[in-house]
Design a protein around this nucleic acid. Sequence first.
DNA 1: TCTGGGGTCCTAGGACCC
DNA 2: TCTGGGGTCCTAGGACCC
Length: 421
Amino acid sequence: MFAIADANNFYASCERVFQPKLEGKPIVVLSNNDGCVIARSAEAKLLQVAMGAPYFKIEQYCKQEGIAVFSSNFSLYGDLSQRVMQIISGYAQRSEIYSIDEIFLDLSGMPWDLTTYCQGICSTVKQWTGIPISIGIAPTKTLAKLANRLVKKGLSAHGAVLDWRTLDAPDEALATIALDDIWGISRRWSEKLKALDIHNALALKKTEPKRMRQYFGVVMERIVFELRGASCIPLEAMPPAKKQIMTSRSFGEKLTEFADLRAAVTYFAARAGEKCRRQKLAAQALTVFIQTSPFDSQHPQYGNSATTEFELPTHDSAILIQAAHQGLERIFRQGYSYQRAGILLPDLLPAGVAQMSLFDTGEPSARSEQLMATLDNINRLHGKKSIQYASEILSNRWHMRQQFKSQSYTTNWRELLTITI
DNA sequence: TCTGGGGTCCTAGGACCC
DNA sequence: TCTGGGGTCCTAGGACCC
């Protein structure tokens, strides 16, 4: 038996925890650079604010309807997510954190009533963190996700929890579920399914799995089996090591100067190095990429990338930064307005298991390890950006617009919530 | 003026191994 | 007429997730 616990409108709920006056009020959260809508409270959904809507197109509407607008605050969301996950994972022997606001639980073999048990999880999480969650329970992950979806639509007889097995007419419920509401099916596949005269989850369940495999591949075949109640997608209690790490951003304003881009990619390379070290991985190569805005039809477009391979796998920020600079020099062209850049570390290995080169003594890498550990410690103890590479801060013109950002209430001593009486 | 930032898996084809 | 059998690795493209 699987359960999926999922926070309701997670980013909007995080903002509401620290501004309870927004209870019952519409909230939207914007992407980096305040570009487009990436989260909406239930009230904002009722006001027909679309997911992904560019903010500049709905700004007036938000003001008119009194919608509270926030820039994304990932240090807040990440921290609250950790707290929620820690609480929920205590309720099962095995669990899998699936995304920032979702966690699967293995509820196999539990002798008590699972609906009551999960209702207890919901109320504890709400009481301890202020975040509302919903839980779907079923014999497969795909059905658990659907049960969760029915909860969100208000179709559960048990509040925030629904056990698929307690449905009186599960097939009738499936018949009401649109294809692209199924986990793993998006617009293209649902269109292709409709062309085959398959129009809802029940119809898909009744297809022949082998035939679906011929049309779509093994992924769709598994979905059909899962809809039938045969589990094909196991719980992954141990998250597999990352295969690649990316750090990229759109800029607050278009950049034309090499020096501004160089500061940006330096920052990205340093962040990618931090991620790499935290996950105990090392990069065999680094790709730097830059591009102009695909929405800008007035100016000439250009995008390019350059990859540098390392002699030895590394997670030393200085080496990553140097490679990023060299790559940028190769691809930078004068005369374009750049909108976005980033760093990709494409082929990661576990740190410390690398093949040494014939003449390597190991000593420089020991010094590098020490230096990186010290750097990470300083930034952990004294806050992000306490110590940075000089070339990161030679320009800040690329910095994101974040006009509506709330405080980092839980991760920064200088931004604690203050209450005036 | 203004449109996010991360990731994964599968498949097919080509090149190569013994 | 007849033309082995079993693999791996890499890449690009296409799909999906949050």
